[in-house]
Nucleic acid binder design. Structure first.
Lengths: 233, 233
DNA sequence: TCAGTGGACGAACAGTGTTCGTAACACGAA
DNA sequence: TTCGTGTTACGAACACTGTTCGTCCACTGA
């Protein structure tokens, strides 16, 4: 039986949760997981919260601030090892593996890591401090630790970004195949040998080798760092 | 003396150069140099060419294609050393220094290097081949060369990107100072020692140390790679 | 109860990349 | 020279984005 025509409909607003920065960040991450970073617009997040984009600005100053908060939230769950001087090398690896894993678990967040000028969220700072602590425990000067930490961080972020472009659905497999063909055609159109090495590396770059590649890069960085100490560590 | 009122004004169109992909790319780079990457919109480039944005699409398929062409153009002038097995290490350094230099000479182009899925322009491929050749000359297997080349490339692009954010006017010095303050305030608000290392690294990161930092990272990578060969190279 | 404050949010703005349709131009053939 | 065809040039319009401004509502404290 329908309501009588004079019945006032219930106030719609009462059914919605009160907005908060935490809720907006969480919703942004939900949208990221479901649809990728490009879908994370103020309108899309607002839509998921059943409101309008302008409502978000009472809680986050800009779109950029929102994605930065999202990044820091992702870093929150990355475990940071307590420094053990005997194992500094393994611990550094553990830490960056964990960071890579967190970024891979959130498609597109690696891109945010690049867009943010200097990550100064609590968790980003915590990470920086942990890296420095590990390297200091390993016997490096503060300067060496700072430089090495920067290089390791850059490499990991770069690797995460590169990897995320392939695993997130951000890249159309059709486009990938097309690019591959274009590249092969171009290289084959030149005199034999012009790209003798390039034409043979394709097999090394696929999802199955990602872990191995990342470790290889870490080993390069940490092996070189150890060599600078003149000690085989 | 003014022209007579019945004089037909010259046809405006005849005064403009005929559009071409090369001209558009060059103009895009001009805008990049003068105003940074964010200013490189189809409208801005078209404006510089005294036309409308739609005109560009007869020569470049998309905005993305335009910036990719710009990147490849920048890489064109980077010298590639002919491999010398005795000097592979120095030569790799030379090559990546040159690449970094080219990117720093074009504010914002490092960002394009990230946005492009897989650079397949002629010059990007040339670079890849050159790196592999140098590493092969150094005695590494194709797989090692491929992995190492990737890591070196990632690191260099990452460093270029990080550096370009500070040197290009893309970053507002006011914002930088503000962030620095926020970061310091936050760290100081915590119990003493929470960020014992982080609070002391600021002095190592400025424009004056950029070259040293880049070399440090390269030395880490190449030192570690040499160590993998079991030879001190 | 009233005044002040902060949150919610629609309407509108400015900017972006791109498409569609039309006009102009260039070129080759008759 | 004229005509037909293909290509280029490009304005108008579209869809989408981040953001601001003004208005309304809810809550709190005096």
């Amino acid at each position: 039986m329908s309501d009588p025509a004079w019945r006032t409909p219930p106030v719609r607003r009462a059914a919605k949760p009160r907005l908060s920065q935490e809720l907006i960040v969480r919703t942004g991450l939900d949208v990221l997981l479901a649809e990728g970073l490009d879908a994370v617009s103020m309108r899309r997040v607002a839509q998921a919260l059943e409101t309008g984009p302008a409502s978000l600005y009472a809680h986050v100053a800009t779109k950029d601030e929102l994605v930065e908060l999202m990044l820091d939230r992702v870093l929150e769950d990355v475990p940071l090892p307590a420094p053990d001087p005997e194992r500094w090398r393994d611990q550094v690896k553990e830490l960056f593996r964990a960071q890579l894993g967190a970024m891979h678990a959130h498609p597109g967040i690696a891109r945010v890591a690049w867009q943010v000028m200097v990550p100064v969220g609590p968790n980003a700072l915590r990470h920086g401090e942990a890296v420095l602590s590990l390297l200091r425990a390993g016997g490096f000067t503060l300067k060496q630790a700072a430089y090495a930490g920067d290089a390791l961080s850059l490499y990991t972020k770069a690797f995460a970004y590169e990897g995320s472009m392939w695993s997130t659905g951000e890249v159309d497999p059709e486009d990938v195949a097309k690019r591959g063909r274009q590249m092969t055609e171009y290289m084959d159109s030149l005199p034999a040998g012009a790209f003798a090495n390039m034409t043979r590396t394709g097999e090394f770059f696929n999802a199955g080798t990602a872990g191995e590649r990342f470790e290889f890069g870490l080993d390069m960085l940490l092996g070189g760092l150890a060599a600078m100490m003149g000690a085989d560590r």
